[in-house]
């Protein structure tokens, strides 16, 4: 059974929602969770919910890094912060993977501090999943975008490695036998995007065992053209925030329209089921979290606003990745380079 270390103090609604999510996991699965954080606070939450104590351990530490804190300073000055202790548990083989909804920068630094990178991997990548159209039956409703912030600039080799890591993750976790991998670029032609992207393109199309479909542009992101989209961290982060911002604007516009007149209200009511489906599709709590790839151990980063459901699903994703040997798959993919 997979053993997952969970940063109980990370996230806007921690420890309440994190602990509740783990409590739900303990009732539904055989996953062993270690909640890392302030023991009295964690136990107080557990006492008020249904849980299976046999599946939950608590590792006490009082320090934690807040969402607003500078990650570098936090990691430097709070050696016993929950995210660092949780990473240490994984590094010392006392847990198989780590889940956090806390400060993303601190999560990346905690991994860098305690985990070794997979042999050959030059930089780790922070991935994110986002909803998109599906083009064929059985296609996952979520696409994997990486890197979204672990790096700023990358060279061609690093982008190629991101592609291999993302492909291995999608193959194992999303169960896509041959995930379609694309580079995010300003044009679909092979020569577009400057030296780094053209070199990456040239190398990716020669690698066997990866289904590289070429470049895709920003307007293709929401379509089902690719299952894994690769870019450097600076661009990935901008894209991710743009997608999130757009979703919020759409919801806001719909609300404003509904308040304007009765015809808009009626129209929106008629579209209610469609909006419901859209809401379900964009509901981040359903997919739990996304991985930081490239280390020998896995970290699943859940949304900062994660509720119990999101945490529960993040833990399940982490356990699935452990069961399916994602890091081994990535190591094998990198080795062939």
């Amino acid at each position: 059974m997979p053993r997952i270390a969970v940063d109980a103090m990370g996230g806007d609604f921690a420890p309440e929602e994190v602990v509740k999510g783990v409590a739900q996991v303990s009732l539904e699965t055989d996953i062993q969770c270690t909640l890392v954080g302030d023991e009295p606070q964690i136990q107080a939450v557990l006492n008020g919910v249904a849980y299976n104590p046999e599946q939950i351990a608590i590792h006490h530490t009082r320090d934690f890094i807040t969402m607003a804190e500078d990650p570098k300073l936090g990691v430097r000055h709070k050696r016993n912060a929950s995210i660092l202790v949780a990473a240490q548990l994984v590094a010392s083989q006392q847990a198989d993977a780590l889940v956090t909804a806390g400060n993303t920068g601190a999560a990346v630094l905690a991994c860098a501090h305690h985990f070794k990178t997979i042999r050959g991997v030059r930089k780790a990548a922070l991935a994110s999943v986002y909803p998109r159209h599906t083009e064929y039956p059985g296609q996952d409703q979520l696409a994997l975008l990486l890197d979204v912030g672990a790096t700023i600039r990358c060279d061609a080799t690093e982008l190629v490695q991101f592609a291999l890591m993302g492909s291995a993750y999608a193959r194992r976790v999303s169960k896509v036998p041959s995930p379609r991998v694309a580079l995010l670029n300003m044009g679909s032609e092979e020569t577009k995007g400057g030296e780094v992207l053209t070199h990456a393109y040239a190398r990716l199309k020669t690698i066997s065992g990866i289904n590289f479909i070429g470049n895709i542009e920003g307007n293709d992101l929401a379509k089902g053209k690719a299952d894994v989209i690769v870019c450097e961290g600076f661009l990935g982060n901008v894209v991710l925030k743009l997608l999130e911002g757009l979703a919020e604007v759409v919801v806001d516009l719909a609300g404003t329209a509904a308040r304007e007149n009765w015809r808009s209200k009626l129209g929106l009511m008629m579209l209610a089921s469609g909006f419901g489906r859209l809401r379900d599709l964009t509901d981040y709590t359903a997919y739990g979290g996304a991985p930081i790839l490239g280390f020998e151990h896995l970290l699943i980063k859940s949304h900062g606003r994660a509720n119990a459901r999101a945490v529960k699903n993040a833990v399940k994703v982490a356990a699935k990745a452990v069961r399916d040997g994602v890091t081994r798959e990535i190591a094998a993919a990198i080795e062939q380079l």
Partner: peptide, 17 residues
């Protein structure tokens, strides 16, 4: 089908409570 870990967690739980 209990494991030593599950028993250890149980013992820790009843103590914490």
């Amino acid at each position: 089908g209990y494991t030593p870990d599950r028993l250890a967690n149980s013992l820790a739980d009843i103590t914490r409570r």
